[in-house]
């Protein structure tokens, strides 16, 4: 090994001294998240303000960590919450159990639940990790401890990250900003369609009855069961 090689190596090291550091001094400054990042869930709404969640509990069924608990109730003409017959009267996710795998998002027939970008969930009491509808509804900024701190200091929630959100999240946030915007990811099946939806002039899903239903499987050639 010659002196030249040593000098080269030292040069690289010295060169880094004058570059902008990669280290982010989180939490003083925000970190950069990738668009695919999956954080605290968001419950989305239709453009007309109705919740997309129909309380079907399929997210709870899909959840490998048993983190979700749903109780459903029926929409009435005086209390129309979702675009369908039923809505989730209780929707809770235990963030201590959640593994942020995104299975709930995949199972959701209406695109009601998506994994958002908040990840600063650390809290003091275990019961505070159970997030209800009011903590996850689209438009709620920050996690429970962040919002608690913000309200105590009477300041806006300080979110410790920068992100270009992925399409689903962006769309949900966009719909909130611009209520008249037409949402493209309405349920494709007849799911969540009901007289309430029709009365509300939403027509969600009714217009596209095609390609619905079951996982595409070939008809069984052998009718033999048992």
């Amino acid at each position: 090994m010659g002196v030249l090689e040593i000098a080269k190596g030292m040069g690289t090291t010295l060169g880094k001294l004058f570059q902008k550091p990669l280290t982010v001094s989180y939490p003083e400054s925000p970190i950069r998240l990738q668009p695919r990042f999956r954080g605290r869930h968001i419950l989305t709404k239709h453009a007309n303000g109705l919740e997309k969640c129909i309380g079907c509990s399929l997210c709870a069924a899909a959840c490998p960590a048993y983190a979700i608990y749903v109780e459903a109730a029926e929409n009435t003409s005086s209390n129309t919450v979702s675009a369908g017959e039923r809505y989730a009267s209780v929707y809770e996710i235990n963030m201590l159990r959640c593994i942020f795998c995104g299975m709930c998002e995949e199972a959701c027939p209406t695109g009601a639940i998506i994994l958002g970008t908040d990840f600063e969930l650390a809290d003091y009491k275990s019961r505070d990790f159970v997030y209800g509808k009011e903590d996850m509804m689209v438009g709620v900024v920050g996690t429970k401890p962040q919002r608690r701190e913000a309200s105590a200091k009477n300041k806006p929630v300080k979110v410790g990250y920068n992100i270009t959100p992925r399409a689903e999240v962006a769309e949900a946030l966009e719909a909130l900003k611009n209520p008249s915007a037409r949402i493209s990811s309405l349920p494709a099946s007849g799911v969540g369609t009901h007289s309430v939806a029709r009365d509300a002039g939403d027509g969600a899903g009714r217009s596209s009855p095609s390609r619905v239903g079951f996982a595409p499987i070939a008809p069984q050639k052998e009718g033999v069961k048992r």
Partner: peptide, 14 residues
Amino acid sequence: AYEYGYGEARFEFT
């Protein structure tokens, strides 16, 4: 429907 159906609808009517 899961066991014996085609698994997909061919009808595009309302």
